[in-house]
Amino acid sequence: MEERLRTMEERLQSKSSTEEQLQRENEALKTTVEMMQAKLESLQSIKEARQVAFSASLSASGSGHTGPFSSVESALIYRKVSANFGNGYNSETGIFTAPLKGVYYFRFYAHCHTGNKMAVSLYKNDKVQCSVFSERPWTNGNASNGIVLILEKGDQIYTKLWDESWVYDDPASYTSFGGFLLFPL
């Protein structure tokens, strides 16, 4: 009987020890799962933040020209926004503000009618990066340009007419501006 009792005590101690070990392993697994969930949520928010792209054309409705102005002080405002992932483009100011540091691609198109000077430049923080120009074409004129830029969070990109020039737009969206994040840095 004593031997049976001793054997039972040993089994109980062994089971108790095994139970304690399982509880420790269970707590470690809970901690690991919590850390993995936090990491997953972090990666999902980073992925969402990296979704940056916009495309807009000058006229929201109707047709007509913008310009000419003797002195151009502000950005062209593209009001017909077809995409604005990441909300970097502001259709009230015409300015794209980089939501995160990265390498971006921008492109813009401009259209003019016969005999009118058309000239537009793309700016990064008030510095010209590239331009298009057509000096009074004999037929309607179109021009486009694009550029890859490294931007810091908060950098601003926009286009401006040159003095004494103009662009035309209608529902076909001849004059437009867009860009997207290639990859974050």
Rank of each mutant, 00 (worst) to 15 (best):
T114S: 07
Q21A: 13
C112L: 06
L22Q: 14
N145W: 01
G178R: 01
L100V: 07
N140H: 04
D169R: 02
L161Q: 11
R24V: 15
A83K: 07
K160G: 07
K101D: 13
Q51P: 05
N87H: 11
A172Y: 10
I77N: 12
D170R: 06
T139W: 02
S71K: 12
A60W: 01
T18V: 13
Y174G: 11
D155W: 05
K39W: 13
E27V: 15
Q44V: 12
G146F: 02
N87Q: 10
K153Y: 08
S63Q: 09
F183Y: 12
L149Q: 05
K124Y: 01
Y78Q: 02
S45V: 06
K160P: 04
E48R: 15
S42I: 03
F177N: 08
L76Y: 09
V132I: 14
L149Y: 01
Y158Q: 05
A28Y: 07
S57N: 12
N142M: 06
N145H: 02
Y158N: 05
G64Q: 08
T93Y: 06
G115N: 04
S91P: 09
G102Y: 00
S91D: 11
F183W: 11
E10I: 15
W166C: 04
E2R: 09
K30I: 15
Q51K: 12
S17W: 15
E48C: 05
L182Y: 14
N142R: 07
R79C: 10
G88Y: 00
Y168I: 07
E25C: 12
F133K: 07
K15E: 14
M118L: 14
A119L: 02
S165P: 03
V148G: 01
F106P: 01
